[in-house]
Amino acid sequence: MAKPPTAAQRRIIEAADPATGRLTGSEAQLAALVRHRLAFRHPRPPHAFFLTPAGHRIREEAPGRAAPSPETPAAAATPSGIFAARTGTEPAPPPGADGPARARDVRSAWEGLLEMRRMTNADGARDRPCAWERTHLVQAAALALEAAGCRPGPEGYEVGETPQPEAVAVRDASAERLRACAAALSAAGWQVSEHAERPGGSHYLLASPRRAG
């Protein structure tokens, strides 16, 4: 962002829902926050606006809130400022990247996804994946795992695509961690089964978003 938010923009940011980051304000005010990459607009009706990780950082720097540690690096995000869950296939993050800022961004992203489920699932269910997750399988599964406290990367899980429709593969060298991943995905509304690469080979998970009924 080229310049700090205005006083009016700060008031909107500070008034955001603490769990989901949902914003209220005029269309022009919210559009300005989007231009500054402090908010994004949900693509589905009712097209609500939510804080990006950068917006959450501004909110937490408000008077009366604990400011993030100056040495804490910013959380990984896409060029647009939208949060990106770790699939375990990225380069190792720098030291300190898994600190409070990352935990906050993961929590906010997960709460935002639950709110997306509520708004877009026909029955308003928050315990079952929504249409967005079915078109972003790897990112959705990775977010569910990271939000549950599972660890990605060289000493943790990797999430990848598979030839099967609506299925991702989750691999981990540790059988115990793999079971933890299975439990986390099941709790997040995914159907999970364990398979072996070949008889006697390493095991992996196949996970698909659970459907209604």
Rank of each mutant, 00 (worst) to 15 (best):
E161I: 11
T20C: 13
A109L: 01
R65M: 12
P95G: 00
D127W: 14
A97E: 01
E161H: 14
V170L: 03
R57F: 00
G156V: 02
A28E: 15
G21T: 10
A173H: 04
R41A: 05
A77V: 12
H195E: 15
I12E: 03
E115W: 05
P95I: 06
L185H: 02
G201R: 05
Q139W: 07
W190V: 04
A173S: 13
W110K: 01
A39Y: 05
Y157N: 05
L38T: 11
E146R: 03
M116V: 03
R86Y: 01
F50E: 05
A62G: 15
A131D: 09
G149S: 09
P5W: 03
G25F: 02
A182E: 01
I13M: 09
P152A: 10
P5T: 14
A169L: 12
R44F: 01
P63W: 15
E115S: 06
A84D: 10
P163T: 08
L30T: 04
G200R: 05
R102G: 00
A8K: 14
E61C: 12
R44G: 05
E115D: 14
R179V: 02
R177S: 11
G156R: 12
R35Q: 10
T162F: 13
D127H: 11
F40A: 10
S26E: 12
P94A: 15
P154G: 08
K3L: 15
P68N: 08
T52G: 09
